[in-house]
Structure formats: C-alpha cells, structure tokens
Write a protein that binds this DNA or RNA. Structure first.
Lengths: 233, 233
DNA sequence: ATCATTATTATGTATATACATATTATGTCA
DNA sequence: TGACATAATATGTATATACATAATAATGAT
C-alpha cells in the first residue's frame, strides 16, 4: 500500500480520482467512509470531506447521507462552454472585429417571443438586429428582443459604439439564463445577412436571460454552419 | 449575536449573490475581506470563505491573495451541458430506446481520424457505426473509431446488447475529452441513415476521449437538425 | 531613482470538535 | 404481517485555531 504522506485535499482528491480511473474503486462500488479514509490518508475528516465533495460535484462520486459514497455508475459528465462576448471571441481568434447595426426600434412582440419570455403578446419591446463581423466576413447575426420594463435605460441607447450584448452584459450582468444550441437551415433573410447560400446549414444559439420573476432578453445568435464550439473536459 | 438562526454558508452565499445581482457590489468593485464579512454575518471566517469560494468558482467573483476579492468585471459565464448516454437521454424524454448496429470491424484509420487522435495513418482501429432510435425514429447516428491499444478487450465485443458508447463508458470511464459542436448539411449517407433529406441540416457533436498520453476514441454523433441541446445557467 | 529584500496582509488550507440532518436499519405494537 | 416510532450512522455544516502561501506594500541598499 502506498502510504501517502500527503495531507492536502488536492493530493487526496487526485489519489481518489486515480483509484476511480484505474477501477480500484469500480463504478457503482461503495467506497470507504470518511473516517476510514481520514485514517488511511492520515488527515482530518474535514479534509477527506472536501476532496469527496469536490469529486461528487464533478459527478464521479455520488454521496448520500447514511448510505455512504459510491462511484458514479454512469459518469454523466458535463461539458462546459464559455459563452463569451462575440467581440472577445473574435479578437481571441485573431480576427478584426466589426459590428453593424441592422435595426433598432420598439416593436410589438410577436407571439413566439412573448411566449418564450412569459410576457403578453403585442407588448412593446425593443427589437435590435445586428451583425458581428470577423475580418469583414459575417460571423454572427444577432436578433434580440429586450424587455423594456427590465432595462428601461436601454431605450435611448443607439448602439453605435457598443453592441447590445455588451451593453446588456455591463448594465445587467449576473442574470440567470437558459441556453439552447441547435442546427437549422438558413432562411432567406438569414442567408442574405450572413452571406451564405439559402438553405445552407446554420448553427444557432438561443439565449433567454432573466432575473427572478423578470425576463430581460431573448437573443437568437446565428452562425454559419462551419462555426465550431469547442471545449475540453 | 442575537438568537440568530443557523448561519449557513448557503444563506451567506445567496445574500452575496443578491448583492452582486443588485449591484450593491458593483462589477469590478473590491468587496470586504473575509474577516469583515464574518463579523457582519456573525459567523466564522471559514463559513464566509466557503461561500466566497463557491461564488468564485461560479465565476461571479475573482479572488486573489492579498489583493482581496472583487466582483467579476465580465461575468464570462460558462454554460454547462450534460453529455448523457443517448439511451438515458431518450428514456428521460419518455421515448422508447432502440439501438441498431450498422457496422463493426477493424479498419485502417483514414488520415483525418488518425490525425485527430495523434496516431499513425493506416493504423488498425475498430470502426463502429450505429444508430440510436427514439420511438423507432432515428435519433443519433454514431460513427466511432476506437484505438485498440487503449482498450484491447473491445475487439471481441459484438455490441448486440450494448452500445459502444455504453461499453466504453463502463469499461473506460473518467477519461478526458474534447468536445465540439457544430452544424452541417447531411451528406447522402448520413441523410439515408437518419432518414432526413439530403442537404438537410444536422447537428453534430464530435468527441475525442483520451487518457493521459493515450487516445481512446473519436466519435461523431449526428442528430437531425431539429435536435436541441438545452441548459440553464 | 531603481532594484532587491523584507514585512504585511488577504486568502488558502488543515485540524479537532461539535452538532445537524437525512436515511437506513431496527424494534415495537397492533 | 405491516405500520410506525426509534436508534444508528454517514455525510453535511459550523467553529476556533493555526499555519501556509501569494502578492502587494514598505523598506533599504546601490
């Protein structure tokens, strides 16, 4: 037995992860209790607890009071994608960012949008359409509806120097959100704006942001189909 | 010190989150130190520490030793998508799951695959193609290449009762992975398998899994374009 | 002034202890 | 047997204390 002389929860966590990866602790198996592990690793129970909790949050362990801790049977792992501000995303890739405002006016919310935000149909909302370009090529078409009740001051913003996304991120950050990814075929309008062929494939990100009990905005961000979202896990 | 209820780090975390959301603590601002907060919330510093650490992990706070803790300027938040086992995904949605093996044989890796996995071109790999169905309708076409060196025992698996994904998840779990999402147009083969029109839009998830220094598998999971990946954040 | 050294400080971690809470196992009574 | 109360137990959380570490601020030497 490798009597680990380590006492940091990082090391303990790593050793536990190793045991799981190498199936010393098999999927579904009950692992020793915190007290036992504390003795084995020669540390306090709190230290073991922290390591176990972090592994549990990561999804590789499942913990239940009294029942104990077991290795997750199906490590239903999660991929984490950062949803960056487009400008940063483009600049990080070395592209030159440009922004073009297509329209910016108060309109009556169509059924689909109002429904999605839980507002009354026909409610006056700000409708902003814009295009983000990388190296002068269309990168993302942004179609946004903003609840004026939630962010009244946006009404007078012209978006000549700042994109609606950046404006909102800095004026109403830390909201909650629901995000959807999917693929679709470009409709004629989208195809024209993104400069792709009609009925080419596009990658769509929809984001609904809200504060508790107060919807803020619904955005549809449309990328050419070649756009790739990458993450490690 | 009043006869206060138990001060839990959950409550403290929630209160701090509220302050951030309502801009009592503005973006970029330095917030009070742990000691100060511990006095304010009438709890131990460790309790404040835990709340702060969790918020920091969530990305709304940025902590630096000696420098203190400040509210994140650009809450470049990340969306977390669970990448479930298809069968579970389908069953969770109330569908009846079926699995159809399309092909399962050792082949020489084509250039593109070998490159992606960092292996020599022409290397013998297991190539498994299968289709997952929900309520008898094509749900996901899975095109997988497995590095036989990494999981030699897979060679003799017939996949008649278990899908390659489930086999790998239970026999080689807890690997690392790189995941890519994008949209594309179905090629004739994919369209036929998924029963969509040729040049319809498809949603593609590519996943590359590996253990340190050892690529395991490359999978291309192709969904009809209507497929939606949803998450909250 | 500039650079290197040291002191200071906020966060990071470890520990013993105590009690809380959820859940299972057990026992009791009808 | 079955319903229900009760004990047992593993994890969850809170706390005081102590020391570690990173990064800044202050200090001194050149």
């Amino acid at each position: 037995m490798t009597a680990s002389a380590r006492k940091s929860f990082h090391a303990i966590k790593a050793e536990m992860a190793r045991r799981i990866a190498e199936r010393v602790w098999a999927p579904g198996a009950l692992i020793p209790g915190e007290e036992v592990l504390a003795v084995e690793f020669d540390c306090a129970r709190a230290t073991v607890n922290r390591a176990l909790q972090e592994l549990a949050r990561g999804g590789v362990l499942v913990r239940k009071r009294k029942a104990g801790t077991r290795v997750a049977l199906h490590p239903m792992r999660e991929a984490r994608f950062v949803i960056p501000i487009v400008r940063q995303e483009i600049e990080n890739k070395g592209g030159i960012y440009q922004f073009r405002l297509l329209s910016n006016q108060v309109e009556k919310a169509p059924q689909s949008i109002a429904e999605r935000l839980g507002l009354a149909k026909g409610k006056a909302m700000l409708h902003v359409r814009s295009l983000h370009l990388s190296n002068s090529k269309p990168y993302q078409y942004e179609d946004r509806w903003v609840n004026l009740d939630a962010v009244p001051s946006i009404r007078h913003e012209t978006f000549e120097t700042i994109s609606p996304n950046e404006w909102l991120v800095t004026h109403s950050p830390f909201s909650q959100a629901e995000i959807v990814f999917h693929a679709a075929l470009a409709d004629p309008e989208e195809a024209a704006i993104l400069d792709v062929r009609e009925r080419d494939s596009v990658f769509i990100i929809e984001r609904l942001t809200y504060l508790p009990q107060k919807p803020i905005t619904y955005v549809r961000m449309i990328h050419p189909g070649s756009h790739r979202m990458v993450t490690q896990l």
